Amino acid sequence: MHTPSVQLYSLRDAVADDLPGTVARVREIGYEHVEPYAFDTNADAYAKAFADAGVTAPSGHAAVIDREDPSVVFDAAARLGMDVVIDPFIPTDRWRTADDATRIAERVNALAEQARSHGLRFGYHNHQWEFTNEVDGRPIYDLFVEQLAPDVVLEVDTFWATVGGADVPAVLRSLGDRVVAIHVKDGKVTGDIATALPSARSALVVPDALRAAYEEQTPAGQGDVDVPAILAAAPRALRVVEFDSYQGDVFDGIAQSLAWLTENDR
């Protein structure tokens, strides 16, 4: 049996209002692991909330690739007892050419080496554009992965890779143990969500069409994503439940995803 995690970005409004209460409620739902975001800005508050609730953070998201001083992030991650730090977002306009893939891969490789000196692993989390943007008929994600050092890890957002047109189980099998975590997310994968993109400044700044499509995300097993095949293709990866947005009570949404994983991920 796997012990799933949940990306706290799913609960960002509640986190902003009451971090300790939110983490405690996540633990009451049944999650033993959490994946915090931007944890370098309030590591002490996260650490207290995690300790009080009895949860751990095997992985976390923070903007590292563009940081002038990544050690701030790695120090915070070590403070929180993490194993893996993931950069969640490099915008689509920087994933256009073979040179772009090389530039990002070289930076990620250097950061992985720096992370190792803090006792951490470092990697990247995709959206759809790394698969929809192609170079010579190949997804630019492939070019990026081919240039990564052996110790660089990946967190595959299986929903966004599906939206981007990837055969996600095949991708996961090809990447093998480099994939240390997957985002388990479900919903509609066609229409505006396949073509609308966030701004180049932030994944949080999105057009109305994409914001509406976000709201069609569902708990695991209730949408268009072949979640069972994805889980089978990444048997050792940490399962991290996430919603970009959800029309209902998001705490109920993450509870439904956990219940589905408990029943189906064996």
Rank of each mutant, 00 (worst) to 15 (best):
M1W: 03
H2Q: 13
T3C: 00
V6M: 10
L8M: 14
S10M: 06
R12F: 11
A14I: 01
D18M: 09
P20L: 10
E32C: 01
H33D: 06
H33M: 01
H33Q: 12
Y37I: 13
F39S: 05
F39E: 06
D40W: 04
A43F: 02
A47P: 04
A49C: 04
A53S: 09
V55F: 07
A57Y: 03
V64H: 08
D66E: 14
R67Q: 14
V73W: 03
A78P: 00
A78N: 05
G81S: 07
V84W: 10
I86W: 02
P91L: 11
W95R: 15
T97V: 05
D99A: 15
N109F: 10
A110Q: 12
A110F: 00
L111D: 08
A112Y: 01
E113N: 08
E113F: 00
E113G: 13
E113A: 15
A115W: 09
R116V: 01
R121Y: 02
N126C: 07
Q128T: 11
E130S: 07
F131S: 11
N133C: 10
G137F: 09
R138S: 13
I140E: 09
D142N: 14
L143S: 08
L143W: 07
F144G: 04
F144N: 07
F144L: 11
Q147V: 01
L148M: 11
D151G: 09
V156T: 13
T162I: 10
R173H: 03
G176A: 12
R178S: 02
G187A: 05
K188Y: 01
A196G: 07
A196N: 05
S199K: 10
S202I: 06
A203W: 14
A203K: 02
V205K: 13
D208T: 14
L210K: 08
A212W: 00
E215N: 12
P228M: 06
I230K: 08
L231V: 06
A234M: 11
R236M: 01
V241T: 12
V241F: 03
D244M: 11
S245I: 03
S245H: 14
Q247L: 13
G248L: 07
F251Y: 12
G253F: 04
G253D: 06
S257E: 10
A259N: 10
T262F: 00
